[in-house]
Amino acid sequence: MQPSSTSAAVLAAEPARDGVPAPAMRPGPTSLSIWLLLGAAIAAIAAFGFAVSDPFIVTLAGYTCAFALFALSINIMLGGIGEVPLGQCVFFGIGAYGVGIGMVKLGLPFELSVAAALVISVAAAAALGALTLRLTGAYFSIVSWGLSGVAMVAATNLESLTGGPLGLFGFSALSVGPVLLTDPQSYFFVTASLLVAAVLFLVAVRRSPFGAAMESVRQNRHLAQSVGVDVTRVRLKAFMLSAPLAALGGALCVPYTQIVTPEVFSVANTVDGLLMVLLGGSQLIVGPVIGAVIFSIIPHFLELDPNVRILIFSSAIIAIMMFAPGGLHQLAVALRQRLRRDGHA
């Protein structure tokens, strides 16, 4: 279950379970298990990248990793401070258009375009956050959704910059240094290693004092304020942290899509990312990654009509929110606890 959002949860440490004193910080994986998981992840990535030869599957896996970065960004807002950022696709689009405009219009190399897009996304998050983060709940979601609508209208109308409704295409050399991103294997390795780096970074963030402050804001922002957490500042910092991750995801999707259209600002992208987060569980750092893998594998093997896919996944979301708001992670934890209880009995 979700930790109770009562005042005690913020002030006191986790209550002791089974007579064992709990650590002072919220329970997280120990350092050893993180290194083990990291090793396993790297081994899995290497095994997958070298063993699977079907270029389509490998490219799809690379795209999944890129989109998982976007899902991680959404989860900084959802799992981190408890807002539903329907407009997070704005930053996804900034990343994609950063690559598009940088390479096609300005003739910059890929790396430089991505770097510029990341900087712009942080600046945009600072400006938009200062305006919209004073709103919470439904108001924030609606306005953030609206901003993505404005971005889509702007991308459609500013034809000289964005290529209008047709979008930008005709990329020359999509490469990071000597590594060519149009090669499926290297595309997968680049996106997968960036994803691992992002997850490690988020683990470090969650363990930092800032991570604790974010958690206190999510659980009860009035109480957090009263014990001296600068809530406005924490929310803004979380937003500015989430933006470059989304932009990186958007930029890394370009080698797969090979075109940037105003559709990147569509709220449908955010919805896909939200689905990934909710499937995997918003309170687990790698939850969005697990969700992204499930989300892209199932439709591929079932060859579903996109509308059937939306119907199934939307119904799944409703069921998850009704019966297991913590996602698959929560189901796994519940299962483990039941097994352990049976073992003791």
Binding site: V84, G137, N307, V308, I310, L311, S314, I318
Partner: peptide, 23 residues
């Protein structure tokens, strides 16, 4: 349930109904 649950459920419900209408 005052937090983000209701937003997501209603959003998903809307998406599901629209997908059903298309089908």
């Amino acid at each position: 349930d005052a937090h983000h649950g209701s937003l997501i459920v209603m959003f998903a419900l809307g998406q599901a109904i629209i997908a059903a209408l298309i089908l």
